[in-house]
Design a protein around this nucleic acid. Structure first.
Lengths: 237, 237
DNA sequence: CAGTGGTCTAGACCACGAA
DNA sequence: TCGTGGTCTAGACCACTGC
């Protein structure tokens, strides 16, 4: 079962895709959408507000509803929470698992996961590849309270898929901190680059539906494959 | 005059600040808010959805409304459209204007601004400083149709302030493209760094309320001052 | 099962843009 | 002035959490 406004949002997005509407092209009017979908005005507006938030459309009072979207290919959208799987769907992604174990958290990890220093967490270290080239080094820490079990097989696949399907955990939101620096020797060797080459460090904290942080990840990206995209929706609406 | 939901959103944010509520602390229930502000349920929900979008709160069904917000200081929020002025308010910002002139657009500029190759645009080159250290090199191109006049005095101050107050232009949304590379010799000298040091390149396209692009800016950041923050709100709601 | 957040409606009225 | 998007309401009913 799906919510009406969600369903309508999906259908409008589908409509834009199959009609191959481009930036600036006009969609049916609010009233048309209301009669077509046989729902109330508020419901359509809610659907449109989702699409607006996601950068798919923009609405202009007195004028109409228009298509936005114009993502350059190969850029990773920093707003979605879905990992890369969506943005880089056209590319050949894989991961090389270096370690999966339980450890005692460092101060930094315990601060972020809001867990005790004496309570073990899962530690996972992976190198992620895109088209067989190293994309990033990823070190993740999982609160065992929410992720009681992990192993190499699970982690070689998509962790998020496992969390969602098996553990029934859903990510509600996340905080990302980006920083630019230089690669040290170890990082450089993993990424097949040179020491002192540019490095993009991303710390990311993932929260569950209930608002509890459960996954703290530290990533170091290969600068050759680091292209990111951000759509800001500006005003409060 | 202000919209009710906007007013309520502001007041709740204010309430969080003066009450010094921290991450995870609970706000009054929906029903309380409805009776306190004497508005309908939908209006409160709209106010809350703005705060949720801005990363200020999160709502949990059956449980309550909680404070989010936990921005590390000095990180630039990549979601806001306001330039740096807000995030770096505590720091000493200034700009050194190198050039202000009208030129014919390159192919790249005309593609982005959707203007003809034969129609002149304003070109502005600035170095921006934070606490007297070079933060970034900024080259901006403005469509003259919307920004008919610029000069050095205006540009030394905040361009966005001028656009808003004098020209009555409002930014509706923007697209940002981030890329990491190495500084060339010229860039390095402007930023007081070394050739081949890390460089963060950001291309940003700003759109007006009507959806027209009017400002295309190419920025190169000093990696020592490049700390960015992104709050993702995850799911479609 | 009480408390709390979320969805949906029908309809009144407002505000902006374009012809 | 008309078409179109935006705000707001009152109320019905649904869904999840935690005692």
């Amino acid at each position: 079962f799906m919510l009406k406004y969600q369903e309508i949002a999906n259908q409008i997005e589908e409509y834009i895709r199959v009609s191959k509407l481009e930036q600036g092209e006009k969609l049916p009017s609010l009233e048309d959408l209301i009669t077509n979908y046989e729902v109330s005005k508020n419901t359509v507006i809610k659907a449109l507000s989702i699409l607006e938030k996601n950068g798919v459309i923009y609405q202009v009072r007195g004028s109409g509803i228009f298509v936005r979207r114009q993502n350059r290919k190969g850029y990773i959208n920093l707003i979605n929470n879905k990992g890369f799987t969506d943005d880089l769907a056209d590319f050949n992604l894989s991961a090389n698992v270096l370690e999966v174990k339980t450890i005692l958290p460092t101060q930094e990890v315990s601060d972020n996961l809001k867990c005790s220093l004496t309570q073990e967490v899962y530690y996972v270290k992976r190198i992620r590849f895109i088209n067989k080239q190293a994309l990033c080094i990823e070190e993740s820490y999982f609160n065992k309270e929410y992720v009681p079990y992990l192993n190499k097989e699970i982690v070689e696949d998509s962790i998020f898929h496992y969390l969602k399907e098996t553990l029934k955990l859903k990510v509600r939101f996340s905080d990302k901190y980006l920083r630019i620096g230089k690669l040290n020797q170890t990082e450089a060797s993993y990424l097949n680059l040179n020491t002192h080459d540019p490095a993009l460090h991303v710390d990311e904290l993932f929260y569950l539906m209930s608002g509890e942080p459960f996954d703290f990840s530290k990533m170091t990206y290969n600068y050759n494959h680091s292209q990111f995209f951000i759509q800001s929706s500006g005003m409060d609406k």
